[in-house]
């Protein structure tokens, strides 16, 4: 343990990240610029989330890391080992045992509590980026809360497809002010953002932005009165645990079109499967 400073980052860097997190908490949904550091993993592997986790962990924490809901994928295993080695914290796969959960693209099925912190890995933090590439302009859009462009995008979805076709990274309005990218979680997870008792922190390493949702913050998915937001999932039950309410991954099982639907949240699925047997 003497080979690394606690949680890898130096104290100056952690202080800088901590100050950014606090400003993010004070202005929910606003993207705070921060001086993102190079981490010993490539961009796209969760460097933003890792830096937030490093600045947030205390030695007593129990850390869980998930990638698309799974604890046992390469990204999740690597990050979990990283903090085991550099922070010496206890790790777990159980959502209920974790105090800090770093996630890529899912919110656990098991409801979070006020004693937990959820850290999201974010690739593109700017919800308006694909509509307006200029940072100066998106900054002005947020300053003026001039979000008509996003409503137009959703409207064009309806005009073309008959419904809002955006199925992940579905834009939300935070506390009646900022429009925020909830990271590429499926829109099925969007309702869990609202009034969540846990602190939710978002980190984008390459894009150098941190944003946050304090507990019990109102988070509304953008929609229209005549086309209300709906959280959708594959219309099946899990092939392993039988859950009809959890978010499902489609798994191809052979070359003949065989497939099955299983829970994306491996901990939720395993615990249910244990309970069933």
């Amino acid at each position: 343990m003497s080979d690394y400073n606690f949680a890898y980052l130096d104290e100056d860097t952690k202080r800088m990240i901590r100050r950014a997190i606090l400003k993010g908490i004070a202005v929910p949904g606003y993207q705070v610029p921060f001086a993102s550091r190079e981490m010993p993993m490539p961009y796209g592997w969760g460097t933003g989330g890792v830096q937030i986790t490093a600045a947030t962990l205390v030695p007593q924490d129990v850390l869980k890391v998930i990638d698309q809901g799974a604890d046992d994928t390469t990204n999740a295993v690597s990050i979990r080992k990283f903090f085991q080695k550099t922070a010496g914290v206890e790790v777990t796969e159980r959502t209920t045992e974790a105090t800090v959960i770093q996630t890529r693209h899912r919110i656990p099925e098991t409801p979070l509590t006020g004693d937990q912190i959820l850290v999201y890995q974010v690739p593109i933090p700017e919800p308006m980026r694909f509509l307006e590439p200029r940072e100066t302009e998106t900054r002005r859009i947020h300053a003026l809360a001039d979000y008509g462009l996003m409503q137009v995008r959703l409207y064009e979805d309806i005009a073309r497809h008959g419904e809002i076709a955006t199925s992940y990274a579905y834009p939300v309005e935070v506390a009646g002010r900022y429009v925020m990218d909830p990271s590429p979680i499926p829109k099925f997870d969007n309702p869990k953002l609202d009034d969540c008792p846990a602190i939710q922190l978002f980190g984008a390493g390459r894009e150098q932005r941190i944003y946050a949702l304090p507990p019990h913050t109102g988070v509304r998915s953008l929609d229209f009165d005549d086309h209300p937001f709906t959280a959708s999932k594959a219309d099946h039950a899990c092939a392993i645990c039988g859950s009809g309410t959890s978010y499902l991954d489609e798994v191809i099982t052979d070359d003949d079109g065989g497939r099955m639907f299983v829970c994306s949240d491996t901990d939720y699925c395993a615990r249910r499967a244990e309970g069933v047997q």
Partner: peptide, 18 residues
Amino acid sequence: PAHDSARGFRAILSAMAR
């Protein structure tokens, strides 16, 4: 310094978030 500031930050974060 590393452990104490980590615990201190969590106390500030908790206060600011709630």
